[in-house]
Design a protein around this nucleic acid. Sequence first.
DNA 1: CGATTAATTGACCGACTTCAAGACATGTGG
DNA 2: CCACATGTCTTGAAGTCGGTCAATTAATCG
Lengths: 292, 292
Amino acid sequence: MVTECMAGRGAKCAVCPGRQSGLCAELPKALLARVAEASRIVECPANHRLWDEDVQPGFTAILWRGYLRMPRYSLEGRRQIVSIICPGEIVGEGVDTRPGYGMEAVTAVTFCRFERGEFRRLADREPELRRALLRQHMKRLEVLRWLTWSLGLQTPEERLCAFLARACETMPYQPLPDGSGILSLEVPRADVADLLGTTKETISRLTHRLQQIGLIEIRDPRHFRIFDRERLAKVGGLSPARPNSSERPGIAAVRRGLGASEGAAQRAARAALSGPSLPMSLPGGSAAVASS
Amino acid sequence: MVTECMAGRGAKCAVCPGRQSGLCAELPKALLARVAEASRIVECPANHRLWDEDVQPGFTAILWRGYLRMPRYSLEGRRQIVSIICPGEIVGEGVDTRPGYGMEAVTAVTFCRFERGEFRRLADREPELRRALLRQHMKRLEVLRWLTWSLGLQTPEERLCAFLARACETMPYQPLPDGSGILSLEVPRADVADLLGTTKETISRLTHRLQQIGLIEIRDPRHFRIFDRERLAKVGGLSPARPNSSERPGIAAVRRGLGASEGAAQRAARAALSGPSLPMSLPGGSAAVASS
DNA sequence: CGATTAATTGACCGACTTCAAGACATGTGG
DNA sequence: CCACATGTCTTGAAGTCGGTCAATTAATCG
C-alpha cells in the first residue's frame, strides 16, 4: 500500500508542491534542510488509512500533495469529518495524537514522514521550528472553530458556499479571462457532506440550486465553474468586505479574512433591528424572509 | 469593572482553587513560583467582556474561579459559543489571539493575569512550561473536536446529555450517599443553548424530558439532581474518546460496565438492523424506530 | 460491455425552530 | 408591603428545513 520513494535527499524540497505554503514556507532555508534530512518521502493511494481512531500515530508528516480527512464516527455508524488537511499542513505532531479520530487519504497523497519523536526532538532544539509549529496549531484551531460555528448556526446552503469559496484557495482553481474560474473538487460528495454535517442528497440539491441562481455551473460532478467567488464567500459568511485582496491570494489570505468579519458595534446595531433575515438570502428558496 | 486584588505574592497559589487542575497542576513547584511571580490577580463580574472579537487580547490569563465563554456571532446576530473555559485553563496565549471571537465572563471570575508577552517569554525559557502549554492546547483542541462532531451528528438531546455528564466533572457537583448527586449548573440556559447549537426553548423541553424519564430531577433551574451519570454519558456518546488515564475519576469508568440496561454491542446490533433510530431514544417522542 | 459505485431526483414526514404568551423569580422604588 | 419592571425559564401551537427512504440516471472500472 505504502510506497516509499527514495528521492535524493537534497532534491526533496525543490520538487515539493507544498514548499511554498504551510509550515515549510515559514522556515529559513538552513532549517528547512535539516528538517528535510530527518524525513523520508512516502506516498499512498486514495482511501488508505494512515492510522485508526484508537491508535496513536507513530509518526508525523507534512503533506506534499493530496488531501487527508480526519473522521470520527457515531455509534450508529454515521461519520463526521472534523478536518480536511491540505498540502503544506502538518499532521500527527501533538495535535492529532488523541484517540477517537482516524486519518485517511481522500485522494492519493504524498508526504514527508518523520519517525516517532524525530520531529519533536527537532522542535525542541529549534525555536524557529517551534514557532512555526505553534502557528500551524493556531491555524488548525481556527479552521475548527469556524466549522463549529458554522455547524452551530449556518444553514447547509451557507456552509456549502463557504466551503466552495475556500476550496478556490485550497484546491486546483483555474481562473478564466472573464473573471470566473474552474474549480476542481478533489473531494467526493460524501466527504463534503460529512464535513458540513449534512447528507450527499442535500449537497446535490444545493449545488444544483446554486447553479440555478447563477452562482456556479456544474460541468461535471467534480468540476464547477465559479462565477463570483466574493459573493460565494459573502453568502457563506466568510468575510463581508475584503480590504484589498490582490489576485493569486494564497492560503494565508483566506485564513486571515476568515475571522475578520465585522465590528461588534455594527453587529449589535444590526441585531437591534431584529431583522431575522439572512444577509444575502438566495432567491432559490431557502428560508429567507419572503413572507411578511 | 475590573478589580485588582493585591494578595501577597507567595500566598497566591496556596489559595487558588485552580491550583490542582489544569495547567498549574502540571508544573513543578519551583516553576510554579516563577510563574506566579509574573502575574497578578484580577477579578471581574459576570458578563464582563475580557476582549472583543475584533481586538487582540493584550494579556494571557489562567482562570482561578468562574467560567468564561468564547462567542462568535453570525451576521443575523445569532450566537455560537465555541468554548466554555473552566477553572485551571489558560486563555489568550497563542490559542485565542485570533480575531472573530470574543471572551466574556459567564459568572464572576477571578484569574491570574500576565501582561502581553510575559507568558510567552517565560515559556521560551522553560521547557516544562512549554510542554504543559502544549498539553493544554491539545485539550482545547480535543474539546472543540468533540463539539464539532457533536454538532455534526448528534441530536440536541444527546448533546445535552453529554454536556450534563461533563458538567459533573467541571462544575460544582455534590455526591449524595445514594449514588446520585446535585449538580450546580453555573451556566445559564441561553449559554448552554448557544454552546450546543440549539435554543433555550429546546433546552428547557429536553431537561424536562430527561426528568420525565428519571435521568435527572430539576430542583430549580440551576440545580439538577443527577441519578445516573454513566447513563447520561452513554446517551451523550462520550465513550469513544479518552482512554487517557490520570483524568479525574468518573469519566474513564464510562467505557467499562454500562450495567444491564444496554450495551454497546446491543446498540451496534440495532444499528446493523438499519434501524435509523437514536441509540437510546427517549420515550418522550424522539424518532425511535417504531415502524418497520 | 455488464457490474458496481457515485450522483441525482422525488415524496414524505418528523424534530426542531420560531413565534407568542404565560409563570416565576428578583430587584427597585414609592 | 405592594406595584412594577426586568430577566430567566417554561409551555403551547404552527410551520418548515432537511433527513430518510427509494428509485432512477450517470459515471467508473474490471
